[in-house]
Design a protein around this nucleic acid. Structure first.
Lengths: 110, 110
DNA sequence: TTGTTTTATCGTAATATTGCAATATACAAT
DNA sequence: ATTGTATATTGCAATATTACGATAAAACAA
């Protein structure tokens, strides 16, 4: 069906999954890595940097914006994208919290 | 096209994205949470626990196995799934490393 | 052997995702 | 007004994902 049955899961489970889903594409990882590397906003060099067509990059940026991890400011003729620091922290906290549910070394596994 | 251009990205970027993609479904989050909660193997109660049909659960388990985070041992008539502790740690390390690329507070953002 | 239980696989329908060409929009500079 | 530049949106084709009924396979019990 292609349609996730979100209603049978908790908000937290859906939140974690949605964040992970957005991070689940190498182009979006590359975009975030590039922004963090140049340590400033990116204003359109992503198309040359990444190697995908401009509409494709634009679409990936839109998905990153959908979880708030990126924000875009209009800067004259171009748009300046940068990381939303608070949201990045929040996402890191959510994912870490999930990754820590299995931190106990004494699991009696088969 | 629906086909990710993996070849233009680095192995690390593809690895992170693949892990995130597998975690990008609430049913798979719920499966991992359930296993970590009962602190032992699960042997088939997932279908009742989660509320999806048995073939659907089986498919999600297969995807979780694809990144090694789950392993299944045949236990008589049923199959016993449990978390692969080493792989879980590895995945946590990979994701943490990524989430830490933007830890500097002094980003000169617009 | 026959039946039961448990999990996997196949087949299929519905929907989502990816990628890009074409086009639209917005603004700056002439 | 027109041209150029930068980004967004639309529309579409190809592929992937999600979900489940039907069925198969495996292990055991009676």
């Amino acid at each position: 069906m292609g349609l996730t049955k979100s209603e049978i899961f908790s908000k937290n489970q859906n939140d974690i999954a949605q964040i992970a889903k957005v991070l689940g594409h190498p182009a979006r990882i590359a975009i975030l890595e590039h922004i963090s590397k140049v340590k400033t906003c990116i204003c359109g060099d992503l198309v040359n940097e990444i190697g995908l067509a401009q509409p494709t990059i634009s679409q990936h940026l839109k998905e990153l914006k959908s979880i708030g991890i990126l924000k875009g400011n209009i800067e004259g003729t171009s748009i300046c994208y940068c990381i939303n620091t608070e949201k990045w922290e929040e996402i890191r906290t959510i994912l870490n919290q999930f990754l820590n549910i299995f931190s106990n070394p004494n699991n009696n596994c088969c």
